[in-house]
């Protein structure tokens, strides 16, 4: 399994044709206390860079974009009941959705963990 990162602060774990998407620890820290998450439903087609989920903190609403094109296979239902999982465990149990990749070539432009760390440090 390989983990990639986007410059919109999402992470994506890829295992064959399937992937899991969430937001990074840096992103949750910037957002602050998260009070609501809306994840996509199973079967929804998402396209790279398009809106896929909504995350709301006490102070603001933000969109989460799909890092790659694909078909959603599962949204994380646990976030509906406990949105604060995104604050407490953003890069594990606080995942947003899983999808089937349409084009693995889209992964080429994403960052690995070291590159993402450098990117965050530059902000």
């Amino acid at each position: 399994m390989t983990r990639y990162f986007t410059n919109e602060h999402e992470w994506i774990d890829v295992d064959g044709d399937t992937a899991t998407v969430g937001i990074t620890d840096y992103a949750q820290g910037q957002l602050g206390d998260i009070v609501f998450v809306e994840v996509p439903e199973e079967g929804r087609e998402v396209s790279k860079g398009g809106e896929a989920a909504v995350v709301e903190s006490v102070k603001a609403a933000s969109d989460v974009y799909a890092p790659v094109t694909g078909t959603v296979t599962e949204g994380n239902a646990a976030l509906t009941d406990d949105p604060s999982l995104v604050n407490s465990d953003p890069e594990n149990s606080g995942w947003f959705f899983k999808l089937t990749l349409a084009d693995k070539g889209e992964l080429d432009g994403l960052m690995d963990e070291a590159a993402y760390k450098d990117f965050v440090a530059s902000l």
């Binding site: 919109e8 602060h9 999402e10 937001i23 992103a27 910037q30 957002l31 995350v55 102070k59 603001a60 609403a61 933000s62 969109d63 989460v64 974009y65």
Partner: peptide
């Protein structure tokens, strides 16, 4: 992700 309501 974008944060369109806060002026950082």
């Amino acid at each position: 992700m974008t944060d369109d309501t806060l002026l950082e």
